[in-house]
Design a binder for these strands. Structure first.
Length: 430
RNA sequence: GCCGCCGUAGCUCAGCUAGGUAGAGCGGCUGGCUGUUAACCAGUCGGUCAAAGGUUCAAGUCCUUUCGGCGGCGCCA
């Protein structure tokens, strides 16, 4: 028996037993109103003084916010109750009487306080809605890829060296040696790809950069598909289909949560293939025309991504960035080797990049040359180079940031609410 | 790392411009109310004004430093 079933009208008139937590309590003397949360929803329960024994009524009167309890009662339709249903209680047992000073009141709190109490904050309606949507996004990613014949092959979290040799990594002792927390599982899925054809990894990644922005976490989750024999174009198409699937499934299954968040879902309903595409070179021209002082060869910052994103109703690919500014493994464009066959996907409504992808270099000589040009330690990449020696094939892949995607889908101002326990440069508690 | 803003009751904040008895709402507690919707009404408890130093007869208020947070930028798929 769950609140969800009651609110769907499946148990009207029936006697139910409900176990859950007390969200709030109101009283008008002879009637007490309890809002009960059980994980599937929240429902009002009423206790009338003349309908239960006096001991239960008095105990209920002493109930504190977030106490856990079990109750029995009859489900009734009542227009006065939020949600249209309520339980008329005839028996109630306290599982644990919460200590009186529950820190999160019904009034406003500041972000620092809420983050200090994150372990309790996740019980609030808004946080429940966001985390439900996150769970749906994760499920959609996995369902989509599994249905498309992908195999899940997770990459290690302890790694021996930097994947791209640039970003700052978290270091940890490893039996007298050093290990680093992964910043991308990509190189490893390139290996498993040769065993399974289409693969993906899904897990946490770590960046030790001191980024202090509303779109960065030091620990975040990525899904990284890698596909054998996929061209650059095949890659973009897969991304379009996957993101469309994610948005559709989330809209379909989590409409109540969008209501809680007051998220206008109209922009999300426009997400469907094909997405718009502009080249990096076109983007630079566009930005210069808009008055940005940016030259060809410079990387796009958030203001640039935002400006581009706002020009399109759907997600937009920005492709073919200067090869010099991108990762060493990206395939140069045969028609213009100055640029790489890569694309970032910008989410609409001013949200920036949520996906980065590329076709990978599969020629051994070229890859060795690039590793040298980037000044990377060749020895650390021996195993990776071996993938080009034994049955190397053209292939492509991408990485989708779960939290950035959820931030956009929920239209949040900050990424920190999209993960149960966010890790940022200034926070590792709780 | 840089720039800006902030730190006062458990929480959200006012008080600072112009130095002169520490305030409000919410939460807690006590009592009232037989249909509440962030319930309401009455009463009550609650303070190292982030820390240290300085100016002054007098500092929550002015000055300096440190710490912590927030916002933006940078770094960063």
């Amino acid at each position: 028996m769950s609140v969800k079933d009651i609110l769907e009208g499946k148990l009207t008139g029936k006697e139910v037993e409900l176990k859950g937590w007390l969200v709030t309590k109101r009283s008008s003397g002879g009637v007490q109103f309890l809002m009960i949360r059980d994980g599937t929803g929240t429902i009002q329960s009423t206790i009338h003084k003349d309908e239960v024994n006096e001991k239960i009524f008095q105990e209920t009167d002493k109930l504190t916010q977030e106490s856990s309890l079990a109750l029995k009662g009859i489900v009734k339709v009542d227009k006065r109750a939020p949600g249209g249903y309520e339980i008329r209680v005839n028996d109630l047992q306290i599982v644990q009487l919460a200590v009186q000073d529950y820190p999160l009141s019904k009034k406003a709190h500041g972000i620092d306080f809420l983050m200090d109490w994150r372990h309790l904050w996740i019980r609030s309606p808004r946080q429940i809605a966001i985390l439900k949507i996150r769970a749906e996004v994760v499920k959609a990613c996995r369902d989509f890829l599994d249905e498309q014949g992908f195999t899940l092959t997770d990459s290690p979290i302890f790694t021996p060296s930097s994947v791209e040799g640039v970003a700052t990594l978290f270091e940890t002792p490893y039996f007298g040696d050093k290990a680093f927390l992964t910043q991308s599982g990509q190189l490893y899925v390139e290996a498993t790809m040769a065993a399974f054809g289409k693969v993906y990894c899904f897990g946490p990644t770590f960046r030790a950069e001191k980024s202090k922005t509303p779109r960065h976490l030091t620990e975040f989750w990525m899904v990284e598909p890698e596909m054998a024999f996929f061209t650059f174009e095949d890659n973009l198409r897969l991304q379009e289909e996957m993101l469309t699937y994610i948005v559709k499934k989330t809209l379909e299954k989590r409409s109540k949560e969008f209501e809680v968040l007051k998220r206008d879902t109209k922009p999300l309903k426009k997400v469907e293939p094909p997405f718009d595409r502009i080249s990096y070179t076109e983007a630079i021209g566009m930005l210069q025309k808009d008055g940005f002082s940016i030259e060809w060869g410079e990387d796009l910052g958030l203001p640039h991504e935002k400006a581009i994103s706002l020009k399109f109703e759907k997600p937009v690919f920005v492709h073919r960035y200067p090869a010099r500014t991108r990762a060493f493994y990206m395939q140069p464009d045969p028609e213009d080797p100055k640029v790489a066959l890569c694309a970032d996907l910008m989410a609409p409504e001013g949200y920036g990049e949520i996906i980065g992808g590329s076709e990978r270099i599969y020629d051994l000589k070229l890859l060795e040359q690039r590793i040298e040009e980037f000044g990377l330690p060749k020895k650390a990449y021996e195993w990776y180079l071996a993938l080009r020696k034994f049955g190397s094939v053209p292939h492509s892949g991408f990485g989708l940031g779960i939290e950035r995607t959820v931030t956009w889908i929920c239209k949040l101002k900050h990424i920190r609410e999209t993960i149960p326990f966010p890790r940022t440069t200034t926070r590792i508690y709780p």
